[in-house]
Design a binder for these strands. Structure first.
Lengths: 349, 349
DNA sequence: GTTTGGCCCTAAACCGGTTCAGGCATCCGC
DNA sequence: GCGGATGCCTGAACCGGTTTAGGGCCAAAC
């Protein structure tokens, strides 16, 4: 091992006591100065700060955690079948957004991926008994979501991604997807489609049921009845099955609104397989605007979500909640329809 | 606020001192008993453990961190443009695999997503000065990767995902992708293809350059020359561009081996757009076997990677390294070709 | 019978911060 | 001139574990 390298390894960690000794003051005063709390003379504070930086002092996160009972980390628990998760690009972008606000604050993100809802609760419990995080993001909201009361009982500061359907003590950071679905339906209706179907997500998931409601609402508003709806679990396989069912029946729809891009992509695949042309024979729209959407053929008409922005807003809100004890709900700009090639005028029958 | 709820919030944390008092022994002995270290009479140990569990004692991660100078967490830093990252399902599956070994051990995963390589190094430094993690996974290995020596200097236990092209002090957990690429080429050659092109990943990335070498190697072995190669940065956009270039030129290839599924999917889109039929006019293979692959039309012939297994193996190895101070390299089973519909016999010219 | 050594255990220091009670000046108002 | 408020600072306790020096006690060795 060479000798030049280890500026880090060899430098015995300089502590607050070293700074105090050097400055000729007590440990306590150094702590006060470093956290700029009142009760320290300005020039003393300046001197302490100067010495601290000269000595290369760095706070010990561990010591600070122990005495202040904070962990300087936020948590995200994702409960999904890994197989399904893999194809959903939401979280990586979301996390990148979260990171943009955490990193400058010196906070870390603790991520858990668990297989099912039960271990998810267990994970939250471990997170708080271990004091691993100061707060969490709650995603994939479900109807009548048990996690909300559970987290409330645990006393864990939480921000929900989306507005729950039940009374919640937590701030919600939401994006309105209703609007995007309605826009999709209007777009298709405007192109002349009458038989429009919806491949919905899971009705147990809040965004699944909301989008489905938005669909039927928009259909009625357009005077097109309720529209045919097939419920799924948001998986690609289920999306493909739903598309197959819809397109194989007599009098198939001329347009299908999918509740997610992955399902829509599977839908396009099924259409091709069945010899149904997109968009000539069936128009297709998606939801999310994942990167693939633009590169398919035909390019997917879809609703643009903004997970990065969402992550940033959620992190900001959660931080505010933790620091001040309360935070306002945040409503992000509604997701908008992005028109590409997968939806067009229906073929004359 | 109701009164029944807060079993957690109200229970004043029981500490090791409480257990000691109850058992009529010293704090130190309790600590010894709980970590089963020698020097405690068997019946005393049993009594202490019994009392600890009766009192509902739970170790304080924070206190333990401070005194033992460990953090009971592992780190993963991902440096990518979030846009590119979003479409790559590798990490979510990988993380799920990691989690299967961390969770039972009571360890957490700290995840950072950073925009570029420079902040990545910075992040590693922060991770160690903060004592945030006990070790890290190093992914997306690059040619002559500066991070390896940097991490070595930081003294941070590391496992590399793949075998570096330079001397490395760290154990490597690798999967041979060479084999899958070679299999793809042989498969295509066996179908009768002569003009086979490769849309490579970034030559600066280890897996990019390895796959490219594997391609040319296999081409030569099949007596088909070097084959045309277009280098990209692994992004979907670059994959689409490459495909466009290849298919628009005079005497286009009859088969294209893509270095990743996302690029292959974009390639299929481009082919459709250009009126080139897949697989009749051009055969296409990918790499990764992302979930989409199976649901496209035609379904993608691709090489199956196993990020979940990889994550599990990497976590096990990193844990071993941290605990014992050394660990062996691990070679995962080679990725195999999965034959689906996107490659077939070339059209007679 | 003393020494040696092992076993079981205690007391106290330690990790590196935060926090709180209180001491000492200095300044104010009356 | 004096009581009280204010500003700056110290010392020590505290967070909840780990670790080490050493003290009895008992059995085996000499």
């Amino acid at each position: 091992m060479q000798s030049t390298q280890d500026s880090v390894k060899n430098s015995a960690k300089v502590t607050i006591a070293d700074v105090a000794r050097e400055a000729g003051v007590s440990k306590g005063l150094v702590s006060f100065a470093l956290n700029d709390r009142p009760g320290v003379a300005v020039e003393t504070r300046a001197r302490i700060l100067k010495i601290a930086s000269a000595l290369g002092w760095t706070p010990s996160l561990r010591a600070r955690s122990l005495s202040s009972k904070r962990s300087f980390a936020l948590g995200l628990v994702i409960a999904r079948d890994p197989e399904v998760l893999g194809s959903d690009p939401f979280f990586t972008s979301f996390i990148a957004g979260v990171e943009t606000v955490l990193a400058p604050e010196g906070l870390a993100l603790v991520l858990s991926v668990v297989p099912d809802a039960e271990t998810e609760l267990q994970t939250y419990r471990t997170l708080v008994t271990d004091g691993r995080v100061d707060g969490v993001f709650l995603s994939d909201l479900r109807i009548d979501d048990a996690r909300i009361t559970y987290l409330a009982e645990l006393g864990l500061p939480t921000v929900t991604l989306g507005r729950p359907d039940q009374p919640s003590p937590f701030p919600a950071v939401s994006i309105d997807d209703t609007h995007g679905i309605a826009e999709s339906v209007r777009h298709l209706a405007g192109l002349g489609h009458r038989r429009i179907a919806h491949v919905a997500g899971s009705p147990a998931m809040l965004h699944g049921s909301r989008r489905q409601e938005a669909f039927t609402g928009a259909m009625r508003a357009a005077g097109l009845g309720d529209g045919q709806v097939v419920e799924t679990d948001f998986s690609i396989a289920a999306g493909a099955d739903a598309a197959r069912r819809l397109l194989s029946q007599p009098g198939p729809p001329t347009a299908i609104v999918f509740a997610s891009d992955p399902m829509a992509i599977a839908g396009i695949g099924v259409a091709h397989e069945l010899g149904v042309r997109v968009p000539e024979d069936v128009s297709i729209t998606g939801f999310d605007d994942i990167e693939f959407a633009r590169y398919l053929y035909p390019a997917l008409t879809t609703v643009g979500a903004t997970p990065l922005v969402w992550g940033r807003a959620a992190a900001t809100t959660l931080l505010g909640l933790i620091r001040t004890g309360s935070a306002e709900d945040v409503d992000l700009p509604a997701a908008r329809l992005i028109v590409r090639g997968s939806a067009s005028i229906p073929a004359p029958h």
